[in-house]
Write a protein that binds this DNA or RNA. Sequence first.
DNA 1: TATTATTGTAACATTTTGTTACAATAATAC
DNA 2: GTATTATTGTAACAAAATGTTACAATAATA
Lengths: 240, 240
Amino acid sequence: MNTDKYTQGPKKEDYLSHIAFDSVIFGFNGKELKILILEYQNTGLFALPGGFVRRNESLDEAVTKGVMERTGIDNLYLEQFHTFGDLNRFDSMAMERILIMNGLDIKAHEWLLDRFISIAYYALINFEEVNPIPDALADSIDWYSLDELPPLIMDHGTIVQRALTTLRDNLDRKLLGMNLLPEKFTMKELQNVYEKILGESFKRTAFQRKMLSANILIRHEKRFTGGAHRAPYLYSFKIQ
Amino acid sequence: MNTDKYTQGPKKEDYLSHIAFDSVIFGFNGKELKILILEYQNTGLFALPGGFVRRNESLDEAVTKGVMERTGIDNLYLEQFHTFGDLNRFDSMAMERILIMNGLDIKAHEWLLDRFISIAYYALINFEEVNPIPDALADSIDWYSLDELPPLIMDHGTIVQRALTTLRDNLDRKLLGMNLLPEKFTMKELQNVYEKILGESFKRTAFQRKMLSANILIRHEKRFTGGAHRAPYLYSFKIQ
DNA sequence: TATTATTGTAACATTTTGTTACAATAATAC
DNA sequence: GTATTATTGTAACAAAATGTTACAATAATA
């Protein structure tokens, strides 16, 4: 491994030029829908976890591995949703600042200041199952509520909005709730996921009947110690 | 303009390396759903209309312009649906053959033999409104039924399948029928579009009621000379 | 043992969708 | 002209899905 401080960043010859990826990782804590944002070392710049594609790995591999490296989160189901390729999307100033603040030589990494097209992915994860770890480039990695996002670099704000739209469109069709809940959960917890993601509320009885008749749930034992009332059943998703 | 036969293909310095686009253009003739396929000059190779992205144009611009240049079809509404980035998707043999058969120098166009990631778009168009014209690289450009496609180069077969899936998913939600019909059309013609795209048939009365109650159609005068029976109304889509 | 809040489900109302029936025609044949 | 023919527009009814209300069951707590 190269130990020269000035050239230890990503090397041009290892990567496909002009191609990047970004990821919008949604997390749910039982109450709120949040997303994962990195803050770059000493720059005050906030960004989505992203990266580049090595010449010898597929796009999907690059994204799975890259997100793992930057966040410490493993076993994510990432779904591609859009490729962003506007002319004005890339801001070389931001990238330059990130390089400088991380002690990386500009000349040696000039290819990173060129124009990039970015393929965007999203994932859903249960908040409490993971402990995100920032990589060497980032000061911090944290969950942010959608209505309390810091200003993001480049077009990352647009990417987040589009991810949210896609998530809402796909919620029912793709059984996405699965990733935000523990193995076993109550009907109320499931309803919470739907309500927070879609931003609307449902009648308890109608929601329950619809979910039960959809034939996607397995009913297990009851969960006790939930309060002074009848204990709810626990459910899990049928794997299809 | 460069007139040297060996170097008159796309020049490396004008384009973003490793990035291509492909388009699946669906056409409907009142009866069948077809797609547009190019046959490359003297190679027996069939492919989707595609191209590359210039350094000074956005991805969407490149696609709109590129498809126009390769097919002669203007004013297409192209929608991005997926980016293909597998390692094995690019077949440099096919590209080499295309270059040779078009009298282009391999050395001068070596960058085209490298790995590419392709952003795929689809469009819908009324068959009879257009007259596709092949560009200089292609022998022919023709409409093919989905069940009579020739073998396509690289992963273009996969791209077509995925385009069809996306089209079906989006048919209702995005009012796509619009692009396949003349300005004014009968209810039967509209039903035909839905049935051919979705590959299933609907009850006439239920379909008619659903479309009328969806409040997306404007009713116009009747169309006479349709045969020995009551004349149907003509409709157009409300622009929203 | 009474109280409390939530849960599971039934019952009914409303809306949407599926099906059948039939009258209203344009063109054609006579 | 008039009868014939096939398709269209719409109403009427049936079935299914969804929305709403009601209420008994029941864990924990007081």
